[in-house]
């Protein structure tokens, strides 16, 4: 079967299409015929070697994918052949507290950019039937991250105000979940077109952060000077200080992304004075994934897909994601 591999070094140029032996499921494993995959900025960081100091090579990239179960080991009870499933991002985080060492798909272990994938039965989740394969493929990392940030750690209440940065995968899921949960959303972006799209998806206010670089002050104005209840922080180093100023006393910042850098100097004073919670979010557990599925099934939520590439053009899709012109998810069809 065909698979993409990061071979003997890191970098997008080191990814190539190879022929691998067809995998066979062990007693508690399932064999999945992959149908679609979705990209995350994290995948680029894995490929260019900046996320993990040491990678076990060769590595099959990508965490997010969906396929049909082709065969199951004799001890498998959770799924049966024909079921459509997604892999969960952190394979052994089933519920409760996060494990100390996360084993994630397309990182510590082989991912889903292969025609066939074998996963433990505990590492897969059935996906809502009304979604297309590409839509369902967007759920494991981006959607679960947004769900964990707002609905689990954020304990989002209707009427709360959420500040969302940008229009990437996590940000748009956060926007959709926040609206689903009766919250008010403010979106910042550097593109009028993207802001328009955010308004179509239910954002009440939008801020163009190139034209309004002090977007945190604008945010305070939009919240009677109090600040927002939650910030979905995907910018990282370049935006965290402003987010700290945009959040209300006792508010919550979900630190998810590091798109603008990893190292930064921030003033601790407002964190203390306002008693802010800054919460690292690293995707979520299987039970979060399942609870999220119940919600999106009930609401028939449609993930926002920017563009779908064929499997063979995986390398082009990475380059496209890197340009960051997308709104929503970049996907692959197998």
């Amino acid at each position: 079967m065909q698979a993409f591999e990061l071979r003997n070094k890191t970098g997008l140029g080191a990814v190539s299409l190879v022929e691998r032996k067809d995998p066979q499921p062990g007693p508690e494993q399932v064999l999945i015929q992959m149908r679609a995959a979705a990209l995350n900025p994290r995948d680029l960081l894995v490929l260019n070697g900046s996320l993990y100091p040491t990678l076990r090579l060769p590595l099959v990239p990508l965490s997010d994918g969906v396929g049909h179960v082709m065969a199951v080991g004799e001890k498998v009870t959770r799924v049966k052949p024909g079921d459509r499933v997604a892999g969960i991002f952190v394979q052994h985080w089933l519920s409760g507290e996060a494990p100390e060492h996360a084993l994630s798909l397309g990182g510590e272990m082989d991912g889903v950019l292969a025609r066939q994938v074998v996963l433990p039965q505990d590492g897969v989740v059935p996906v809502p039937t009304y979604l297309t394969d590409e839509e369902a493929a967007t759920l494991p990392c981006a959607a679960v991250t947004a769900w964990n940030a707002l609905m689990v750690q954020g304990n989002l209440k209707p009427g709360a105000t959420v500040l969302i940065q940008g229009t990437g995968g996590v940000s748009l899921f956060a926007l959709q979940f926040a609206r689903m949960a009766g919250a008010r959303v403010i979106v910042i972006s550097s593109s009028d077109e993207k802001l328009e799209r955010a308004r179509q998806l239910g954002a009440e206010q939008t801020i163009h952060y190139k034209r309004t670089p002090d977007w945190e002050l604008e945010t305070l104005k939009l919240t009677d000077g109090r600040g927002v209840d939650h910030v979905v922080e995907v910018g990282g180093a370049g935006t965290l200080s402003r987010s700290i100023n945009a959040v209300r006393a006792g508010g919550h910042i979900s630190l998810i992304g590091i798109l603008s850098g990893i190292n930064t100097e921030i003033s601790l004073r407002p964190i203390l004075r306002k008693q802010i919670r800054i919460q690292g979010i690293y995707v979520g557990s299987r039970s979060m994934f399942e609870a999220m599925n119940r919600a999106i099934e009930l609401h028939k939520l449609k993930p926002v897909i920017d563009r779908v590439f064929p499997f063979e053009e995986a390398l082009d899709s990475f380059g496209y994601l890197e340009k960051a012109n997308h709104v929503g998810k970049v996907c692959l069809r197998f």
């Binding site: 209440k157 209707p158 009427g159 709360a160 105000t161 009766g182 919250a183 008010r184 009440e204």
Partner: peptide
């Protein structure tokens, strides 16, 4: 007060 926010937003 929290409830009134929810009523207003929705």
């Amino acid at each position: 007060a929290d409830m009134l926010k929810a009523i207003s937003v929705n």
